[in-house]
Design a protein around this nucleic acid. Structure first.
Lengths: 192, 192
DNA sequence: GATTGACTTGACCGACCGGTCAATTATACT
DNA sequence: AGTATAATTGACCGGTCGGTCAAGTCAATC
């Protein structure tokens, strides 16, 4: 694996486990087995690296969760339940490995950085918009099939996203992924 | 106002506006017009100050939002809508003043610190538990009055809290408090 | 009026922060 | 083989981090 990728992967892990501010460039370099000067050959700043990390988070999200839930061939409404299950399993697995609930990598960064760095906030906002669009299209598919009626797909999609994020926040602060077993399926069944 | 209170108030403002990691002890001292040595006479560490800040956040929450919504004399279910309205107004006011959506002071710290500082996580978890307890008691009152039936007051209370937090997170990352106008009332109407 | 203890001052500490840079090595093209 | 360029090294920069400390001020008590 090349240097660029090692830096990116190290930053993804460290920032997800801690936070933007708590992870220094030196720590990223150490984990990536790269010297600082080499880091700044591949990234012009910590901010630029973080923008790439956010893209990578979303790419992973698509590859792991979205692919298995939303391209699964399941009926549209069941895809949300599948998405919830996969999210729960992942948080439980991380908790077993690390002793902590990490929550959502996008939500974590959004909370920490939105008032501090406009470029990072915009990038995160775009990812949330993409997720919301996916949710909306899935809900619309359910409406078109006649699986559900009388819902506002836009608002429902946004509310589901909000509740997913809020559940992860509560689980993180409670350091207990098991509360997601009740909460995330409820989020998946939101209809507005 | 005495020194202790000036330090506490300055820390409350700065940490809410930025984050734990982005606010140094020196910045708090400067805002409070206090020397560093004096700071460490009143607080043994930045962590201890933060624990006091969390208590102060919850005290403010009770004085401002909870008092006006949950001790308002309104019917129980309408108190949630009132709580939502007050939260929206506060975020809109802050946005006008600062250009940013600050979100929830407890949720912000929970996201940033839960994997990093166990004492802070526990204190925050206790505050969320108190809020959840208040929500649950209010829902139970509604059930007892016959305003609603067939709901699980425990899960509904937790889900409402999660959705409130998630909505604030989305509004913050979107830097737009107006999306709360649709989302928070929906959170207030959650029934599980 | 002397003593005491809470409070304040401001300089200071080592560690770490994000970022720079000249020098060196490795790679690829002519 | 020669050369240009990409990549890497590791020392270095000023600044800030949380925290310490000796010295001094102040008000209350005896």
């Amino acid at each position: 694996m090349d240097t660029y990728q090692r830096i990116l992967d190290s930053a993804k892990e460290l920032i997800y486990a801690k936070s933007y501010a708590d992870v220094g460039v030196a720590a990223i370099c150490e984990k990536a087995k790269v010297q600082k000067g080499s880091f700044y050959h591949h990234f012009s700043s910590k901010q630029e690296l973080t923008l790439a990390v956010i893209d990578a988070y979303y790419t992973d999200l698509k590859a792991v969760l979205i692919e298995q839930a939303f391209n699964s061939g399941l009926p549209p409404l069941e895809r949300f339940a599948k998405f919830a299950e996969l999210s729960i399993d992942m948080q439980i697995r991380l908790h077993k490995q690390t002793g902590h609930v990490y929550g959502c990598p996008l939500g974590n960064l959004g909370t920490e950085m939105s008032t501090q760095d406009e470029a990072i906030r915009c990038k995160l906002d775009g990812k949330f918009a993409s997720l919301q669009k996916l949710f909306r299209a899935t809900l619309q598919e359910a409406v078109d099939r006649g699986d559900v009626k009388g819902i506002n797909v836009d608002i429902t999609a946004q509310a589901m996203l909000a509740m997913f994020e809020g559940c992860l926040l509560l689980a993180k602060t409670h350091n207990d992924p098991l509360i997601l077993r009740q909460l995330l399926p409820a989020a998946a069944q939101l209809r507005l």
